[in-house]
């Protein structure tokens, strides 16, 4: 589904990613772990199309297409979803408004008609229940005044509605208490499917207790320094990042 080959990325004069190679197949869950400043967030931003970065080399192929050529909204319509580390507050736009606009935008791209109002409400209520959210959130401005946990649930709600193929979760566990972490993880787990892949970017192993990855990659100084199975995360937790950084 996703193939990253020798990707190098800079911000200004500073090289952040120094040759990333990664192959992700449908149905897989990959965790990308690493210390602060290792380039984890840069990788998720690059995949979702955020501006301010310069790709200096390498290629990213998503479902056979050049991902880096696509504007962010086309990536989203093609099924790439980024759950933000810091979801943006958008005053004056209600959650339900954004969800409907986003869903219709994806449907239109795939040649489908706009979602029926009643079907949409049914769908949205089902997903809201799944994430144990209050329906009132739907009518509040996007993320405005939401707590950290509410913002993260809201990201997963959007993901559940848009049903993307490649889900990138950027530090989704940060700022979550244990209850919220469980709910968010259950939400993510309910979306696992053979035709959907996940990239979970995280500093801590904690999230991986709830969402079990197939592969764990350790990013340090802009490169993947170690890859392994779920057990690698536990090893990291025990030994700390200095163990792999030194390697």
């Amino acid at each position: 589904m996703l193939s990253i080959k020798n990707l190098t990325v800079s911000v200004g004069d500073k090289q952040i990613l120094k040759g990333i190679n990664l192959e992700i197949k449908a149905g897989e869950i990959h965790a990308i772990m690493g210390p602060n400043g290792s380039g984890k967030s840069t990788l998720s931003h690059i995949l979702s199309g955020k501006g301010g970065y310069e790709v200096t080399g390498g290629a990213v192929t998503y479902q056979g297409k050049d991902l880096l050529e696509m504007p962010p909204e086309i990536r989203a319509r093609e099924g790439v979803f980024l759950a933000f580390q810091y979801p943006v507050e958008i005053a004056g736009v209600s959650n339900i408004y954004l969800l409907k606009a986003a869903l219709n935008s994806v449907r239109k791209y795939h040649g489908l008609s706009e979602v029926d109002a009643m079907d949409f409400l049914t769908l949205i209520k089902e997903k809201v229940r799944l994430l144990e959210m209050d329906e009132k959130f739907l009518y509040r401005a996007v993320n405005e005044g939401f707590s950290g946990g509410e913002k993260k649930r809201n990201e997963i709600l959007q993901m559940a509605i848009l049903e993307p193929k490649l889900c990138i979760l950027d530090e989704t566990d940060s700022g979550l208490d244990i209850d919220a972490l469980k709910v968010v993880s259950e939400g993510v787990n309910s979306l696992r499917s053979p035709d959907r892949a996940f990239i979970m970017v995280t500093h801590y192993q904690r999230l991986l207790d709830y969402i079990k990855p197939d592969y764990v990659h350790v990013l340090a100084h802009g490169q993947i320094v170690k890859s392994g199975g779920a057990e690698l995360a536990l090893e990291l937790e025990e030994k700390g990042y200095s163990w792999v950084e030194a390697a």
Binding site: S48, G49, K50, G51, P71, P72, E73, R75, A76, R77, F81, L82, F84, P87, V88, I90, A91, G92, V93, L98, A101, A102, S105, V106, Y109, A141, Q158, L162
Partner: peptide, 29 residues
């Protein structure tokens, strides 16, 4: 705000529509 525009783009909304939505939202408050 560029961050808001990108957020909406990442939700499948094209840049022009994102700008319209945000401008309208600014007034709608």
């Amino acid at each position: 705000d560029d961050k808001s525009i990108f957020y909406l783009q990442s939700r499948a909304i094209d840049e022009e529509t994102a700008r319209n939505m945000l401008t309208f939202a600014f007034a709608n408050e």
